[in-house]
């Protein structure tokens, strides 16, 4: 199973395992990672699972997708070029070791 690491704004690290095919947001919720709420259940419609993708990983995850993900991020505090909604990052072996940092503003 691919592993991923969430780093909170106060530098706490949460290493979790995710099944291939589930989103990073769901992996966070399943492992009670604080700072990821996922209120909309994974359809990029609430902006409560905002993360920054570590630069070295951005090519693999891709940038935020045009449409509702970009629309929501444009209204989210402190969103930037490496911002994604983690519900739109689907885990796979290719993303084993992925590092996601959380913004201060989520909580």
């Amino acid at each position: 199973m691919p592993k991923l690491i969430f780093i909170t704004s106060d530098k706490q690290e949460y290493a979790v395992e995710a099944q291939s095919g589930v989103s990073a947001m769901e992996a966070a919720l399943d492992n009670l990672v604080p700072g990821i709420d996922g209120d909309c259940g994974g359809v990029a419609a609430c902006g409560t699972c905002h993360v920054y993708v570590d630069q070295t990983w951005l090519a693999k995850t891709g940038a935020a997708q045009e449409g509702i993900e970009q629309d929501m991020l444009s209204l989210t505090d402190n969103a930037g070029a490496s911002s994604r909604l983690s519900c739109q990052i689907i885990m796979s072996d290719e993303l084993d070791g992925l590092v996601l940092t959380m913004p201060e503003s989520q909580h």
Partner: peptide
């Protein structure tokens, strides 16, 4: 469980 999943705040850009 997962009480935060509700519609009351709306979803999308007008949330």
């Amino acid at each position: 469980p997962r009480a935060r999943q509700h519609l009351s705040f709306g979803f999308g850009i007008h949330r």
